[in-house]
């Protein structure tokens, strides 16, 4: 018995070439879609880069592993849309490096959590989840309120984001450290500057209820209150959404 395959595996050069060919197919299927990313991401209004304070909050979100229990991906299922709001668009995570879609929901999806609850609630809930939500299994993150936010690193953080394609300009990067603190300033002294750099509709206030410092709690709550609020998905027409 001598099949074609038997012949092939007895010829080392031919066999090597075939292995390379088949293995590279696997790579191709992973890489090729990235070349079509431009027509995968919807062109929608409202998407903007994250402010430095929101980005700092996002870094804390990643650091604390929130993605292990919370997804940020409302699927195209009626049950998902009924509970969490309009399904997530690709554009809404276009500035996420890395994305926070998640794959497991021990807690609820957070893709549209922004504006659903008050800052006070978020702070109370992050400090002691079971005080406000009976039966919650979320750990407490009270230490965030006692930890000063390291604003100095935000300049480097913006540079890093810009290197992977997030369109932060000179202006953003130069003022990153100042903007981080200014967004959590209860007096909103630099409000106009932040709006000029990042656009309308940015939450500028003291988020954690402690006006004397910019804490990690400020950053995380600023991030959560922004989630899902940038694009007005409900205002989009069916034709713009279907693809």
């Amino acid at each position: 018995m001598s099949t074609a395959h038997q012949k092939l595996e007895r010829h080392s050069l031919k066999f090597t070439i075939m292995i390379l060919l088949v293995a590279s197919l696997g790579g191709l299927f992973e890489i090729a879609p990235l070349f079509t990313i431009d027509n995968t991401v919807e062109k929608v209004e409202g998407m903007r880069v994250y402010t430095p304070l929101e980005l700092a909050g996002r870094d804390i979100y990643v650091r604390e592993g929130c993605y292990a229990c919370h997804s940020q991906m409302i699927r195209t299922l009626k049950s998902d849309v009924d509970r969490y709001g309009s399904f997530s668009l690709a554009a809404e995570s276009m500035y996420d490096h890395p994305f926070q879609w998640g794959s497991k929901r021990t807690g609820p999806d957070l893709a549209r959590i922004g504006g659903k609850y008050s800052d006070d609630w978020h702070v109370a809930h992050l400090k002691a989840p079971r005080e406000v939500v009976k039966g919650s299994v979320m750990p407490g993150y009270g230490f965030l309120a006692d930890t000063n936010l390291d604003t100095d690193k935000m300049r480097a953080a913006l540079v890093a984001q810009s290197r992977v394609g997030v369109p932060y300009g000179e202006e953003h990067i130069e003022n990153a450290i100042k903007d981080t603190a200014a967004q959590a300033d209860p007096e909103a002294e630099f409000e106009d500057e932040i709006i000029e750099r990042y656009g309308e509709g940015i939450n500028i206030r003291d988020f954690d209820g402690n006006r004397d410092r910019v804490s990690e709690m400020d950053a995380l709550v600023a991030y959560l209150q922004m989630l899902g609020t940038l694009v007005e998905v409900d205002a989009l027409k069916k034709e713009e959404l279907v693809r």
Partner: peptide, 14 residues
Amino acid sequence: YSSREEVIDILQSS
């Protein structure tokens, strides 16, 4: 088929 179209239609009819 489009999953987005499907869910939009389901939501509309419900």
